[in-house]
């Protein structure tokens, strides 16, 4: 292995990779941190002096409300994804192996189409004159068309639709690892179905749940185009606020601070995920 150290090829590869990541990942992220502690400037976007005004503004009860509401929207999205995805992944793990692959493939196909176009397709369905209403009205289920479009519900439906595969895939992988013997053992030890579920299945699938939550919760806070199309251009997500600060109101420190709060949330979730995995490892090993 020591000869390898003197290789020009290795040097070239490492320089390229390090250069790319330092220039396009580390530097930009440091810039955002820097911008968040600077002062808003109408001419040059940001200027000295350094201060924490942006963070103070962020925790202004008014803006805190926006952030918390966005968190609520994202949490609802995650919850719905979990409620749909958990039984889905479980059911999937009960199907034959060959068919499983086909079904996973079918799940990913829509994910390969443009997400804007898919969001737009939902609009066709949810609109007041849309397909859902024109299907329900003749059936006599409703008298007045349902006003679904431009509501928070429509935004949550849109987010769930775009993010569902990100919940299902990690869940599927833990269900696949779930050893049948363990469940049988639990059964043999006299545990009932519910007890097996609570004491065996839930803890064993927890890392998958957390991974899914991580993959859904954060993107759900950033996908600004979903409220733009389905939510009547309201600021329902932090993503809308960040986008407005950068592309409309030109308050960069504030936008940067908001994005840092998102990043910190992500770090926290990743930490929780690691912790749950480690604990599981200890118990299992």
């Amino acid at each position: 292995m020591h000869r390898v150290l003197q290789q020009p090829f290795k040097t070239a590869v490492l320089v390229l990779v390090w250069g790319w990541l330092l220039f396009l990942v580390l530097t930009p992220n440091l810039l955002v941190v820097g911008a968040s502690v600077m002062t808003r400037d109408p001419g040059t976007f940001i200027s000295l002096p350094l201060n924490l005004d942006a963070y103070r503004q962020l925790f202004d009860p008014l803006y805190l409300d926006v952030f918390l509401h966005s968190l609520y929207m994202a949490a609802m999205t995650t919850l719905v994804c979990l409620l749909i995805g958990y039984p889905f992944a479980w059911s999937l793990s009960k199907v034959g192996k060959q068919r499983q692959l086909l079904l996973i493939f079918l799940l990913i196909v829509p994910f390969w189409t443009n997400s804007l176009v898919r969001t737009y397709a939902l609009k066709l369905i949810l609109a007041t004159n849309g397909l859902l209403n024109s299907a329900l009205m003749p059936l006599g289920l409703i008298d007045e068309p349902l006003k679904l479009l431009y509501t928070e519900g429509a935004v949550i439906i849109g987010l769930v639709y775009l993010l569902l595969p990100f919940m299902i895939l990690p869940l599927y992988s833990v269900f696949e690892d779930l050893r049948q013997e363990l469940l049988l053992a639990s059964h043999d030890l006299g545990a009932g179905r519910l007890s097996t579920f609570i004491h065996v299945i839930v803890p064993l699938t927890l890392p998958g749940v957390l991974a899914g939550v991580m993959l859904v919760l954060l993107p759900a806070m950033g996908l600004f185009f979903v409220p733009d199309i389905l939510g009547g251009s309201r600021n329902l997500l932090v993503g809308n606020v960040i986008k407005n600060q950068f592309l409309d109101a030109r308050n960069w420190p504030f936008g940067a601070a908001a994005s840092i709060v998102l990043t910190v949330t992500m770090a926290f979730l990743m930490f929780a995920h690691r912790l749950s995995k480690r604990r599981l490892g200890e118990e299992g090993g």
């Binding site: 109408p42 926006v66 509401h69 309201r234 600021n235 407005n244 109101a249 308050n251």
Partner: peptide
């Protein structure tokens, strides 16, 4: 003027957040 615009911008953000 920019100062008044900032005041508008703040309330606009709040309004569009629709609480």
């Amino acid at each position: 003027g920019d100062e008044a615009l900032q005041v508008y911008a703040k309330y606009w953000e709040m309004l569009k957040s629709g609480q």
